[in-house]
């Protein structure tokens, strides 16, 4: 399932309301009406994805501009896992399986 070549696409920013609340962030998804409670780095990931279809490595590179991700390979693995979780929730969509 977690193929590192998989492309993911987030909904446009206006599809959700993001509300930081102390340690966590609330994300209200307009289309489903579901409120997600997420921790870092989920809000940052969604923001960095914008509306492009990206793979985990591309996203890791974008995040590395603002955050210290440590080892690049580890980061890609971790980001792939988070992306898969977000896809399960329907906050991002798997666009193609390369």
């Amino acid at each position: 399932m977690a193929n590192p070549k998989t492309l993911y696409q987030a909904e446009p920013a206006d599809a959700r309301i993001v509300e930081p609340l102390d340690m966590m962030t609330l994300i209200y998804q307009r289309r489903s009406g579901i409120t997600h409670m997420v921790g870092e780095p989920v809000p940052q990931m969604l923001e960095a994805m914008g509306e492009d279809a990206v793979d985990a490595a591309t996203l890791a590179a974008r995040l590395a501009v603002s955050f210290d991700l440590g080892g690049q390979d580890d980061a890609v693995t971790l980001i792939t896992e988070r992306l898969e979780e977000l896809a399960e929730l329907g906050l991002v969509e798997r666009v193609t399986d390369a």
Partner: peptide, 15 residues
């Protein structure tokens, strides 16, 4: 609310 949930559920099934 019911329509939002129904369409979302359909989309979950699609995925």
């Amino acid at each position: 609310y019911q329509h939002r949930s129904a369409l979302w559920e359909a989309d979950c099934a699609r995925r």
